[in-house]
Design a protein around this nucleic acid. Structure first.
Lengths: 134, 134
DNA sequence: GTTAAAATACAACAATGTTGCAAATATAAT
DNA sequence: ATTATATTTGCAACATTGTTGTATTTTAAC
């Protein structure tokens, strides 16, 4: 989808930082940390601006963050139906650190202990990605 | 297992901070953030000491950290065979924030895209825990 | 173009991650 | 028990990241 229409859909004004971040995330096709995003942008925006933009995008569901082990936070563009989808899978490469969204994978819902109820499943697969396997 | 023998097994000296942290994590039976751990300890150790102790424990495999969305890092005691187990499941309560290890759950290995290989599966289930459902 | 609402840069501060080093402590040898 | 050695701890300092207030700039609607 065009960056412009993504912003339109969520009633967000077309500002340079927003356009730049969405363009970056859609073009790379992987999840990136805030710093990786910052490096890929055409212009050097203020840290606070990027922080607030990512926050806005997360709240609107335009992007989502990927739960990975440790303390690095990765962001990726969400497919249109992301929020309605119960289960999400991501791949974390131990070699290059790359994080991929695996949109096609569905997770078999596991049996939960008595009394627990679930509304979202997040599967993170660690391993070696295609590029690093070659 | 006794705290003492856990430390022995990994050739770690029995120091107050180490004993205290392991006792805390084994007694609560859930995953805790560094701050939650700090609050539960019998004595107020320095932040750096706790940081280094958690690092040591992670490297040795005595504890593991749980990948959850956002930026909070949770730590939990590992079962003896944790490192040999390919797949791990955790439950994250949206209501109280509690994080539980679901040791009994096994994850069906999903089909990966061509060229990708996996060595660890981390499933995080979000929902409402037993206490909050009551 | 004018105007109101929103976004941005800048500054400041809070929280967290991390390291060097001197003092204190644990363990092993005596 | 005492001592010696290696390790751990507390303290201080600094790096990085998370967060917010505010004045200025920019956007979108008129």
């Amino acid at each position: 989808m065009k960056t412009e229409s993504i912003l339109d859909q969520h009633n967000l004004s077309k500002t340079p930082c927003r356009v730049d971040i969405i363009n970056t995330l859609t073009s790379v096709d992987v999840a990136l940390t805030e710093n990786q995003i910052k490096k890929n942008l055409k212009f050097d925006y203020d840290r606070a601006t990027i922080f607030r933009t990512l926050k806005t995008f997360s709240e609107k569901g335009i992007i989502h963050c990927v739960p990975v082990e440790g303390n690095e936070v990765y962001y990726a563009i969400s497919k249109p139906n992301y929020k309605q989808t119960l289960s999400h899978a991501h791949f974390h490469c131990n070699s290059c650190g790359g994080v991929y969204c695996l949109n096609s994978i569905s997770i078999a819902e596991p049996q939960l202990p008595e009394g627990f109820s679930a509304n979202k499943y997040e599967l993170t697969i660690n391993g070696c990605c295609k590029k690093c396997n070659e």
